[in-house]
Simulated scan of single mutants.
Amino acid sequence: MKAILRWALCLIVAGFALEVFFVARIAAMAAIDPQSTAFQRSEAWQLATAGRRNGERDWKQRWVPYSQISDTLKRAVIASEDDQFIYHQGVEWEAIERAWQRNAKAEQLAARRAAKMRARGKEPRPPQLRGGSTITQQLAKNLLLSGERTLLRKGQELVLATALELLLDKERILEIYLNSVEWGEGVFGAEAAAQHYFRKPASRLGAGEAARLAVMLPSPKLYERRAGSAYLTGRAATIAARMQSAELP
Rank of each mutant, 00 (worst) to 15 (best):
S80C: 08
E56H: 10
D83T: 00
W59L: 10
E56L: 12
Y66R: 00
E56N: 15
W63M: 05
W59T: 01
Q61P: 00
Y66H: 04
D82N: 07
A76Y: 14
V77T: 10
V64W: 03
E56T: 11
Q84K: 10
R62W: 03
Q68D: 13
T72S: 09
W63A: 08
D71A: 07
G55A: 05
D82A: 11
Q68V: 05
D71M: 01
D82P: 00
I78G: 13
G55D: 13
P65R: 13
K74M: 14
V64E: 01
R57P: 02
G55Y: 00
R53V: 06
D82S: 10
L73T: 01
S70G: 12
D83K: 03
D82M: 11
R62F: 01
I69Q: 08
R75T: 00
K60Y: 07
I78E: 06
P65S: 15
S67L: 14
S80E: 15
S70I: 06
P65I: 11
R53W: 04
A79N: 11
V64C: 01
R62H: 09
D83L: 05
L73I: 06
N54G: 07
K74W: 14
V77W: 12
Y66W: 09
S80W: 15
L73C: 08
N54M: 13
K60L: 07
S67F: 04
E56G: 13
I69G: 06
T72D: 13
S70Q: 08
Y66S: 09
Q61V: 08
D82H: 02
D58V: 02
W63Y: 14
Q84D: 12
K74Q: 11
V64Q: 14
Y66T: 00
S67I: 12
L73G: 03
D58I: 03
E56C: 04
E81L: 12
N54Q: 11
S67D: 04
T72H: 09
R62G: 09
D58H: 05
K60D: 04
K60W: 05
A76G: 04
I78T: 09
R57H: 15
A79E: 07
R75K: 15
N54A: 10
S67H: 08
P65W: 03
S80I: 02
Q68M: 04
V77Y: 10
N54W: 09
Q61H: 13
R75H: 04
E56V: 06
I69C: 05
W59A: 11
D83M: 05
R62K: 05
A76L: 12
A76D: 14
K74L: 10
S70F: 13
T72L: 03
W59C: 04
K74G: 03
S80P: 03
I69F: 00
R53P: 01
R53Q: 04
S80H: 13
W63C: 09
T72P: 00
Q84M: 11
V64H: 15
G55H: 00
A76W: 12
V64M: 02
P65K: 09
